[in-house]
């Protein structure tokens, strides 16, 4: 299986563990990732907020770049990049005038035939729990995790078309396949405050505190995320700083027998190492 890979800016920056673990896990699962050449920022929430055309154009620019590759699917770990590219492709298909305008701005024609997937969605749909289970070398027995999907993967549903926006389960299934126990909780898609982290830190702190508190109440050993912004916010803005916030790819990597160091597990503020050692998952 081959796919184009669009890491997005954060995965080059603060979220290197997500990038590394994603690449490693895909390799282990036999998915050949090929980076979009010269990819750029999707515009993220600032562009979406401030300039609709710019937002669409930046996403379209990357779509055009991906269309130069000889793969049918783009896999995107960052949920916001995922939703932006998906949304832009749909907008262009629906509005010929917009398409003409944007194609002029990005100096490329856009076919709009690329399959756009979030990394979680791709693994859930193409590999599935059974495929993941086959690769497990070190089952995560005894690990109780709270899967946290955040917003952009599943909301709004008519844009992303992925899983159930109120109670998604695709990550739960993958984690269960790894041998972990998942918490059935109601904060899977409660917002962490996302991009307000820098400018409205207190708002984000309030939101994150509540999410982590519920994870604690549910006796979770860790919160598992599929988004670098969720990870950064939950990790940095929680009370006590004891609840590890891990990428689902890191746990997959662990179960596939990779080392904690390679997976960047030591890079989190709330360190999972002690807990993982206690469970005998890392030595």
């Amino acid at each position: 299986m081959k796919a184009s890979y669009y890491p997005g800016c954060s995965l080059e920056g603060t979220a290197k563990p997500y990038d590394h673990s994603s690449r490693a896990v895909c390799e282990a699962l036999g998915i050949g990732l090929e980076d979009i050449p010269d990819w750029s920022c999707c515009g993220s929430s600032p562009a979406l907020k401030m300039n609709k055309d710019l937002s669409t154009a930046l996403a379209a620019h990357n779509l055009a770049l991906s269309e130069t590759q000889s793969v049918e699917d783009v896999v995107i770990p960052c949920p916001f990049c995922f939703r932006r590219l998906l949304s832009a492709q749909a907008e262009l298909a629906a509005d010929p005038d917009l398409k003409a305008r944007i194609e002029g701005a990005v100096e490329a024609e856009i076919q709009g035939t690329t399959g756009i997937h979030s990394l979680l969605g791709f693994l859930a749909e193409r590999v599935g729990a059974d495929g993941v289970r086959k690769k497990v070398q070190r089952p995560l027995k005894g690990l109780r995790v709270a899967p946290y999907y955040g917003c952009y993967l599943v909301k709004p549903h008519d844009v992303t078309g992925f899983d159930d926006p109120e109670n998604p389960t695709s990550m739960d299934d993958l984690l269960t396949a790894l041998g972990a126990e998942t918490v059935d909780w109601d904060f899977k898609t409660e917002c962490c405050g996302a991009g307000l982290a820098v400018s409205k830190t207190e708002t984000v702190r309030d939101l994150c505190r509540r999410i982590v508190a519920e994870a604690v109440h549910q006796k979770a050993d860790a919160v598992v995320v599929a988004c670098q912004l969720c990870q950064a916010n939950l990790d940095m803005r929680q009370d006590g700083g004891a609840m590890p916030v891990l990428y689902f790819t890191q746990l997959m990597g662990l179960a596939f027998g990779m080392s904690a160091k390679d997976l960047g597990l030591k890079h989190h503020l709330a360190s999972p190492m002690k807990m993982l050692k206690a469970k005998g998952i890392v030595s």
């Binding site: 109120e166 909780w185 109601d186 904060f187 509540r210 508190a213 519920e214 109440h217």
Partner: peptide, 8 residues
């Protein structure tokens, strides 16, 4: 908007 469980 939502009915959810928090803290049991």
């Amino acid at each position: 908007a939502r009915v959810f469980r928090e803290g049991g």
